[in-house]
C-alpha cells in the first residue's frame, strides 16, 4: 500500500502541473461566464439553471481531464520508458492501482477548486445551496469509474486515440443507456429487450449515480442513496481493476 501511495503522490504532482489541468481550471472559469449568460436567458428559475449548468461544466471538464490526461499520460510513459522504471519498482498491479489513484486524487483536487469557484459564483447570484456538495460527491464516483475504464483501454490499446475514443464511448453509452432501455423496455420483441437490458446492466449505471438533479432543486440525497451508490461504485471499480490487472499481466511491453 505504501508503494501505491508513493507513486500516486508522484502521479498527482505530475497531473497538477500538466497544462491540461491548468487549462481545465481556466475553461471552467470561462464556462461560469457562459452559465451566467444562460441564467439571464432563462425566463424563470435562473437559480436552477445556474446550478445545473455549473455542475454540468465541472463534469465536462473532469471527463476531459481524466480521459485525455490518463490516456496520453499512459502512452507517454510507455514511449519514454518511464513505465519500465515504475514497473521495476512496483510490479504491474500496484502500478495500475497507483495510476488510477493518482487520477482520482487529481479529480478530488479539481472538484475542490471548481466546487469552490462554483459556490462563490452561486453565492454571488443568490443561487447557492449546500446540496451541490452531494452532486459533487456523485460526480467523483462517476469520474472514478471513467478513470477505471480509461486505464483499462489505455492498457488494451497501444494508441492513445483509440483508448480515448473507447473511454468516451463508455461514458456516453453509460449516460444514454437508461433512456435507450426506457424505450426498448416497451418493445414486444424479447430478444431485442434482452440484448439492451444486458448492455444496460453491464455498463456503469450513471443515471443512478447522478445527484445533480437533486442538487438543482436544492435537495440532498438520502444516506441510503449515498451508501448504495458508494458501494456500487467501489464494487464496479474493483471488477474493472481486476480485469485490467489480468489484461496488463498478459501484455508484452
Amino acid at each position: 500500500m505504501r508503494k501505491i501511495l508513493s507513486l500516486s503522490v508522484l502521479g498527482l504532482k505530475q497531473v497538477r502541473r500538466q497544462k491540461l489541468f491548468v487549462a481545465m481550471v481556466f475553461f471552467f472559469i470561462l464556462y461560469l461566464g457562459f452559465c451566467l449568460f444562460l441564467g439571464k436567458l432563462s425566463v424563470a428559475h435562473a437559480d436552477k439553471v445556474l446550478r445545473d449548468t455549473g455542475l454540468m461544466g465541472i463534469e465536462i471538464s473532469l471527463v476531459i481531464l481524466s480521459i485525455f490526461g490518463l490516456s496520453l499520460d499512459f502512452a507517454r510513459e510507455r514511449s519514454t520508458h518511464t513505465l519500465d522504471i515504475y514497473l521495476l519498482h512496483l510490479g504491474r498491479s500496484a502500478y495500475l492501482a497507483a495510476k488510477m489513484l493518482s487520477y482520482i486524487l487529481a479529480s478530488c483536487l479539481y472538484l475542490v477548486i471548481s466546487g469552490l469557484a462554483l459556490s462563490i459564483f452561486l453565492l454571488l447570484y443568490r443561487s447557492f445551496t449546500p446540496a451541490i456538495f452531494g452532486a459533487l460527491y456523485s460526480l467523483l464516483l462517476k469520474i472514478t469509474l471513467v478513470i477505471a475504464f480509461t486505464s483499462l483501454f489505455a492498457v488494451i490499446f497501444s494508441s492513445p486515440l483509440l483508448a480515448m475514443s473507447a473511454a468516451l464511448f463508455i461514458y456516453i453509452g453509460a449516460e444514454l443507456l437508461p433512456a435507450a432501455w426506457e424505450i426498448m423496455s416497451r418493445t414486444p420483441n424479447v430478444y431485442e429487450r434482452g440484448v439492451i437490458y444486458t448492455i444496460y446492466a453491464i455498463f456503469p449505471n450513471f443515471s443512478r449515480l447522478d445527484f445533480r438533479y437533486l442538487a438543482v432543486w436544492g435537495n440532498f440525497p438520502s444516506w441510503t442513496q449515498i451508501v448504495q451508490v458508494t458501494i456500487y461504485t467501489l464494487a464496479y471499480l474493483v471488477c474493472v481493476y481486476l480485469l485490467n490487472t489480468i489484461v496488463f499481466g498478459k501484455k508484452e511491453l
Binding site: 505530475q14 510513459e77 520508458h81 518511464t82
Partner: peptide, 8 residues
C-alpha cells in the same frame, strides 16, 4: 531513449 517525466 529514457526520458523521465518532465513535470517532476
Amino acid at each position: 531513449n529514457f526520458f523521465p517525466p518532465s513535470q517532476l
